[in-house]
Every structure is written in C-alpha cells, then in structure tokens.
Nucleic acid binder design. Sequence first.
DNA 1: CGGAATCCTTTAGGATACTG
DNA 2: CAGTATCCTAAAGGATTCCG
Lengths: 127, 127
Amino acid sequence: MVTKQLGGLPEHADLTRADSLAREIFSDVANKWALLIINVLDDRTLRFSELRREVEGISHKMLTQNLRMMERNGLLVREVHPTVPPRVEYTLTEPGRALQRMVNGMCDWTQRYLGHIEGSRRRFDDA
Amino acid sequence: MVTKQLGGLPEHADLTRADSLAREIFSDVANKWALLIINVLDDRTLRFSELRREVEGISHKMLTQNLRMMERNGLLVREVHPTVPPRVEYTLTEPGRALQRMVNGMCDWTQRYLGHIEGSRRRFDDA
DNA sequence: CGGAATCCTTTAGGATACTG
DNA sequence: CAGTATCCTAAAGGATTCCG
C-alpha cells in the first residue's frame, strides 16, 4: 500500500517505500532481459528457439530462467505441445501486454533521445 | 503490430536487434535502482542525502554510481553549491522526465496487478 | 555532506554436458 | 527441441575508511 495519495486524487505509485511484495515484483520485472523478452514477444506466440534467436545476445540459461520467472508472475503463458520433438510456445497475458506497452515506450524513448544522450556523454567524458 | 520492420510505417522501436549504442543505453536505464531514483525524483530537486533516505534500501555506493551514470546520459543535472558543508542537488532533465512518466506507469502497473501476480505465483509454486 | 577508494561477499550469467 | 544441472568467471553490490 503505497501510494503517495493523500487527498484522494489518484497519485502515482511510489515503490520506493513499497511493501516487500511490490518491491520484489518490480525488481523481477525491471531487468534488462525480462524487458527485452516482453518487447520481442509483443502480441505474438513464439517458440523457445524463436525467442532465443530474436532476443539478441541472450543465453539459453538466461532465457529459460527469465521465462520461468515471467510465467510465475503471470506475465506470460507457456504451452507445451507433447509432440516429438517437443514444441513449447510462449504468449503474453493481458498483464504482460499492459507492461509491454510501457516497455515499447521505453524503447521508443531510447531511440528518440539517442542523439541527446550521445552528446551528453561526450560532454561528460571530456570533463 | 509487430511487424518490427522496415517498410516505412512508424513501428515500435526494437531493441532486440538494435545497434550497440541503443542497447547500451537501454541496459543503463533498465535497471532497478535507476528506475527507482527516477520515480522518487519526479519533478523535484533533491539533495544526495534526501535521495539516500527516500530510495529505500539503496546504498551510498549504488546511489552515487547510478547518479553519475544518469548524469552522463543526460537524465538529470547535478548542481554543486560550494558551501560548507557542501550541498549537491539533483533534478531530472526533460529526457529524464519523459522516462519518468513511463517509470510511473510501471509502478502503477505493479500496484494494479499485485493481486493477480500473487495468485499466479501461488498457483505456480503449488505445481 | 558528498564522494572516492578499498576490500570482500554475493549474485549474475556464460559454457558445457546430459536427459526426455 | 526444450529443459536441467554443474562448474566457473565476471560483475553487482555492501561495508568501511579516508578526503575536500
């Protein structure tokens, strides 16, 4: 319970003082690999191997680890097709898609301010 | 929407295939401490010690380290008042504030889906 | 007070091998 | 193909101390 809300107007959630559950969830989610997986999954249904290929640079281990965590938190569903060879597919849930919109926002942000950031870095590194 | 490509229509940025600079920036920003600092700074101007108090659980070292990184990337400005004892204040820049809106969205998301996530976790942990 | 540097522990994460 | 387990190295991060 953690809103800065006092007067009644809906204020932004403040996780800096949040209870441990909210902080834990935020920590799970606010990590590079999870966010990149969400971004690439989008509204598609992808296999493990497809995700592995599309999330550039992720290792087999990190992918499984993050997929488990995201499934546990209800961000995506995992469907196993008992064929041989096995076929396992991942799809974002509604909460996952809600998050995905914000992740897309962050990606767009990165693109948009790329030049600004590059300049800021140069200035900083000179001094 | 998802056609993460190339035709010409404005699509969401896809950092999974992005150039190394964009990936680096995203990695800088998509980390727990940076996002919490952004969330607590909001539109205020805060001293180092105030941030230290408000970002619950952050260590002296992590705070300085992240503040340097965020200053370098132009997310915030650092103002030193040459008094004694020294007074150093931090304020989000416009790019920083743009990011902050999305971080707030993520915090709100966490609050909103807390119950859903808790339930999903229980179900997962039972199986 | 804010920051840098040091030391030391914990975790993240890669490589590899094995299983159904 | 997807997943698990093991080993091992690199990076994150806490505690502490010293400096302007």
